[in-house]
């Protein structure tokens, strides 16, 4: 039986991982296989992980404000490696204007502060199935 596999990654140097860990717990409890990368992952680390783990969805938690740089590089590398079909979702503190820009660039979903775990689970399931 096919299980949904999702990567939960903390790109950059920011160490605030409460959100990432809670999301990982919730998705595991929802029956998904969560590949947790830990802190300080570069975009190339994450793309490498996504490729090797054949993840259905890539989830990033970014609170440092470096989301633009990280997402640009990530999407570029995903393209290079032939995994541009995998949906990428971002959670964290993302200013409103940036949300639209990120979505235009190809980020499938942005989860701002206050997103409920249920909404998040639901949306990730949709994305994994659509893929």
């Amino acid at each position: 039986m096919k299980k949904t596999r999702i990567i939960v990654a903390k790109p950059g140097l920011d160490g605030h991982d409460r959100g990432a860990k809670i999301v990982a717990m919730a998705l595991r409890d929802a029956g998904m296989e969560v590949i947790y990368t830990g802190l300080r992952q570069s975009p190339s680390d994450i793309v490498n992980t996504a490729l090797q783990e054949d993840a259905d969805v890539i989830g990033l938690s970014i609170l440092s404000g470096a989301h633009m740089r990280i997402c640009d590089r990530l999407l570029e590398l995903m393209n290079e490696k032939g995994i541009a079909d995998k949906p990428v979702v971002v959670g964290g503190i993302i200013p409103h204007d940036d949300v639209e820009i990120l979505k235009k660039k190809g980020i499938a979903e942005v989860f701002g502060p206050g997103t409920s775990l249920k909404q998040l689970e639901q949306r990730i399931k949709e994305l994994a199935e659509k893929k």
């Binding site: 590949i35 947790y36 990368t37 830990g38 992980t49």
Partner: peptide, 10 residues
């Protein structure tokens, strides 16, 4: 529910 936390890559 058969989910898993796969953390060895850390």
């Amino acid at each position: 529910k058969g989910g898993a936390f796969l953390g060895d890559r850390i």
